[in-house]
Amino acid sequence: MIEVKKLVKRFGMKTVLRGVDFDVQPGEFVALLGPNGAGKTTFLRILASLSRPSLGEIRVAGYRLPSEAAAVRARLGVVSHLPLLYGDLTAEENLRFFARMYGITNYELRITEVLEMVGLSARRHDLVRTFSRGMQQRLAIGRAVLHDPDVMLFDEPYTGLDQDASSMLDDVLRSVAAQGRTVVMTSHDLVRAEDLATRFDILSRGVIAASVTRKGLSRSNLLSFYKQALAN
């Protein structure tokens, strides 16, 4: 579903990604872990077609980036630590706006489905700026799944959430992944990542330094694997 070969990204003289190779099979949930500055967000922004690669080959859902970016974006849902929502519009108006941007017809029914899924039906007519951080993040996930994407990218989705909001987000993430979507998530929360993902890749110094599946991790825990990968 996602194929990345020898991906390099430079900002001026600074090289952030130094030849990343990355493959994700359909239905996999990959947690992309790594220290601050490792290039996780940059990598996700390139997969989301928000940033142009300096070198390398990328295919998402069978389409090349950046040449077929619009086709990739139609199959992609992105959630970041920012809500990507308009505070002066209601929850329903935000979803209606994005439904029109994604070319969804008969969107009223779909909006109702999505609001039920993220548990915000009762607040559909409230302005987003009156929402708590957790509610905004749930609505952000609703926005990202509105067009039923094949691939979901989550960039630090737990940033700024309290324990209750994080648990609620866990449920939403599980329900998103349970429908066979391919998911790539960056996170610093190793406990949550271990609970949700089926594969764990460590991005360090601009390359994938280590990778392990949930089955392969059975003899140790994720924290020790992570520390060992960074030490090497």
């Binding site: 992105v78 970041s80 308009y86 070319g103 926005r143």
Partner: peptide
Amino acid sequence: RGCLDGLLLAP
């Protein structure tokens, strides 16, 4: 609120 990214993600 990162809304520009939300716009740019539209196909």
